[in-house]
Design a binder for these strands. Structure first.
Lengths: 143, 143
DNA sequence: AAACAAAGTTAGCCACAGCTAAGATTGTTG
DNA sequence: CAACAATCTTAGCTGTGGCTAACTTTGTTT
């Protein structure tokens, strides 16, 4: 028995890794695949940085990567990416209630999202649903 | 005229710097002074790291620091610390509406706060005020 | 097929912000 | 005042995640 070959260690993810996962899933959903050059453009970082990170994420079991060829999310990578995307959407929906500038919303969500725990997210989701039924109240906040 | 001696460059601050400022102000408010050892304990990092950072913050004009002696916030450091503290309070007040665990609130706020822009903060502040007048609605979120 | 451009990779660098270990300073106390 | 403990500093290290410059691979185009 050769012991475990890979040392999985539960896919912990940093804010940076979460950003990558989010963009990779989005690219796969819209274009069918995620190329290094597109990820780089989307995150506004260099291709070299992307190559580097993607290799780390392969090592962490979040995706399968083949040099010069391409990448696919693993099951756990995809699950993580989806939950990150969902969190992003919930926070965006919440902030959109208040008539803030779209760019600002994006920027704030992009920063905050990595730090919002599941219970807090759930509360914000429920709150957003309630507020949608109270446009008068929301209007007072927008002023 | 010896030109400007220090190169101020507008006190940009990272998340880490903001955490330090927040704790330093709190220590000054409660104990009258901020010692390296207390900052370290409060942020759960080593004293060496605190010394290091405090020296950088001195260089950045956020505080005045004298080796082995102590520190005082500069005017701009104090202004920044106060606005950080205010932001922290507003976010905490908001999350407290939903009956979340205090520790969780603290943790989430500690992570998110550095990424919330002034307009977003203002909206959340106004929303919190409105929600305080709508306990029935809030109760539906808490469930 | 040769040449070229686009995409990807590697090597080596940097700043940030933590850490430990070892040494310096300070204040207290016998 | 000598010695001690507490505090603080320095030196040197680490990992993360960027960067540029130079090189390689791939695919297209003539």
């Amino acid at each position: 028995m050769p012991a475990q070959p890979k040392a999985k260690a539960a896919p912990r993810s940093s804010a940076a890794v979460e950003d990558y996962l989010e963009r990779i899933l989005e690219l796969i959903n819209t274009k069918g695949y995620a190329r290094v050059v597109d990820i780089a453009q989307s995150l506004k970082i260099s291709q070299a940085s992307v190559t580097n990170m993607v290799q780390r994420m392969d090592g962490d079991g979040l995706l399968k990567y083949e040099r010069y060829r391409g990448m696919v999310l693993t099951a756990s990578g995809e699950a993580l990416a989806k939950s990150i995307t969902r969190r992003h959407r919930i926070l965006t929906d919440f902030l959109r209630l208040f008539g803030l500038d779209e760019e600002l919303i994006f920027h704030d969500v992009e920063g905050m999202e990595h730090h919002v725990s599941p219970p807090t997210l759930k509360a914000i989701e429920a709150l957003t649903a309630q507020l949608r039924r109270q446009p008068a109240l929301v209007a007072r906040v927008r002023l």
